[in-house]
Design a protein around this nucleic acid. Structure first.
Lengths: 402, 402
DNA sequence: AAAACTTTTTAAAATTTTAAAAAATGTTTG
DNA sequence: CAAACATTTTTTAAAATTTTAAAAAGTTTT
């Protein structure tokens, strides 16, 4: 493949991206998106129509002038596999080029600490087979999971380490498709940015209310990772004075007070002390139980979530001062009870932010619910088509600093 | 001026930028910097040599092959005026195209709350005249000052407001040169990034230890401002439990404990309570007095700075978790006693950061000292040549979002 | 029905890159 | 010690790409 073909391919992929994020666009829109002239854009669009991956969808309306042609992706020309993992489970789904789920997907349970890459590969290959997908029509597999992940090198440093090889390389060899990996919170942020309430936002913070408190940051329209990929360690900022030792070894981390794990621990303690609550009927009081009872209105569950939320709000107040985001999105597992989190967090923001900042920041609840991570996995693939890992690694090596 | 000429001009200005930040570069270096092919780069370079703003500086060494020609800016072809203001004073200096001060500069004292734009204009015009500079050879004037500033609109919302006009417009009309404004902490960050210890860094935090605690953030190689330009409000993050009311109206702001103003207030209180200290000899104990005595080893002064530093360190620990910077630079007025700040801050980082993050972040003291802001003002001009305000405003209006 | 406006098409012009040759220099080898 | 070779930069000319400008084609408003 010559260099000119590569750059052409990337131009194509930019157009595919534009259309994946928008049902249909005019040639002018696409021309702006890819930063090329209209004649050139139209030439490329025609090629893609001939290729069969883009179709014409009639004319858009006009405010007084010739009506523009609408271009869209052909929905079933290609598909994307998205794999969303948490510490304890994984879901696999397939999406078409209109970002729609083409089936119900499958779910598997495990403890990620004991999960083997081969198991993961087996689940994915089985899924592709059972969904009846032809691998030639699959753009790629987006795997999103907890851990400290380098998406460019294709390595998860926390889980699923493969000796002498990157996880992505190993997966690609055994699945026969392009594979991309990303951190779960980051994936949720991607999903919210492209298809959720953070759509169109260049400066957004997406809080992943889950087993821990994850944070995905969109800075200047792009996912922000920091110098060594560790940025967004929100759940370990030292702002709590409860003396509890965190798993990370430090005291005072936000997650010792506000994660679902911390909330569950508190619930168990309170119940033991004889607190009345509909939680008593559970054999093991875990996050799912608390969320379930909180929805039903159990006082203790609601109280515990509210308290945790206020502490998270204090942390968010600090984030706002430093990053001045346009929106903050509450997403992730626990955001299904988003209403319960919202007002304590908003109150903490009002109490701890300078007014100009508090007013300039919108606090929103995800409307993607538990789909955010799966959608983020699909976005991950779309964002990376046209940039195979090998090319990225070459760039990393070349990187010249003047 | 046709559009093609504009883009050519911007290409020229990219080359000027590359050479302003580097004493000399080869055509290959410049080609990489501006992202164009070597033949094209050499063509443009020849034009600039003919123009007289770039000169040849002989050959660089080679690791085995033809030696590359070194290109440099002609030092006295153009000059830059930099104006560095604080709340209480301003310095004016002129720099040549090698980033060297061409004279001693001048200094004026005032309270910025009562400063008039006309006064500022008078100082600048007088300076240019007395320095014997021809305005045709001055690239522009970079004014850096406290306040909430929108550099694109050319407005300082906190000070020096001009009715019905932007400050920059007014200044340009009365000085007859391109004028650019920027926040003081941001300017210091620019200076440190291009010429200081944060050189080459894409992810750096520059702490401006001054009357307040300023913060300039370099994210992905660029100054980060947030959604509405308020990012980096480090001095108002709520992390102190001292009950003191901050000027911003909130309790618990970092600056109630750690700014030079807070330190001076504490010193006065301690002296009144009969503490022994070489500070007693001062009529008014202000920041300058404390810095002076701390250098001499006065126990009280050192103690107060150390305490403040530890609190700043707690704040920095939070910044590190969120932003994962490669380096943190202590700069600004109070960084002349940088050694005193260093170890309490480092200790707070070690205590409050997860180890992987603490180890990945270098804490450095500025070597530009009080020159950082002036140099930042010059960088401000260099960064903006080729992009006149009017063009920027047009772009702001056009900004299409898909 | 004319005027105003927007999108699309076309063809010429301008820009930029590619590829190959030439020039210059350090390293290796006989 | 010099010739051969590997490397790197510079030059050249042809090829490819992309843009500009102007004309044409549709729509809405007046």
């Amino acid at each position: 493949m010559s260099v000119s073909q590569v750059s052409l391919f990337n131009e194509h992929s930019r157009i595919v991206q534009a259309l994946y994020y928008n049902e249909s666009l005019s040639s002018t829109d696409i021309s702006v998106f890819i930063g090329k002239s209209i004649p050139h854009t139209i030439k490329v669009l025609n090629e893609l129509v001939k290729d069969g991956c883009i179709e014409l969808r009639g004319y858009a309306s006009s405010s007084g002038g010739r009506r523009p042609m609408k271009y869209s992706l052909v929905a079933d020309d290609h598909f994307i596999i998205s794999v969303a993992m948490s510490q304890f489970n994984m879901r696999i789904a397939a999406l078409d080029m209109n970002n729609r789920f083409i089936n119900e997907g499958t779910e598997h349970y495990f403890d990620i600490h004991h999960l083997q890459a081969d198991e993961l590969i087996h689940y994915i290959n089985t899924f592709i087979q059972e969904a009846g997908l032809n691998k030639n029509n699959v753009l790629g597999v987006g795997i999103t999971m907890p851990g400290f992940i380098d998406p460019d090198k294709g390595i998860n440093y926390s889980f699923l380490e493969i000796p002498n090889q990157s996880l992505v390389e190993y997966m690609q060899q055994n699945i026969g498709l392009p594979v991309f990996i990303e951190n779960d919170s980051t994936a949720i942020a991607l999903g919210e940015q492209k298809f959720g309430v953070a759509r169109q936002q260049n400066d957004a913070l997406i809080v992943n209310l889950g087993w821990g408190i994850g944070l995905g940051m969109i800075v200047d329209g792009k996912i922000f990772r920091g110098h060594s990929g560790l940025a967004g360690e929100f759940s370990h900022i030292p702002i709590v004075k409860n003396g509890k030792l965190c798993l990370c070894g430090k005291h005072g981390c936000l997650e010792t007070e506000s994660s679902l794990i911390a909330i569950a621990a508190k619930a168990n303690a309170e119940i033991e002390q004889g607190q009345t609550s509909s939680l008593v009927k559970y054999e093991q009081i875990d996050a799912d139980a608390i969320i379930k009872e909180a929805i039903k209105g159990d006082t203790l569950s609601v109280k515990l979530i509210s308290e945790a939320a206020y502490t998270v709000g204090q942390g968010i107040a600090i984030l706002i001062h430093i990053l001045n985001p346009a929106v903050i999105v509450l997403s992730g597992k626990a955001s299904v009870v988003g209403r319960l989190w919202l007002s304590p967090i908003q109150q903490a923001i009002n109490e701890h932010c300078i007014p100009r900042l508090a007013h300039g920041t919108e606090l929103l609840i995800s409307d993607l619910n538990d789909k955010a991570q799966l959608i983020g996995g699909a976005v991950l693939v779309v964002e990376n088509i046209g940039e195979p890992l090998s090319k990225k690694l070459n760039e990393l090596k070349k990187e010249v600093s003047i």
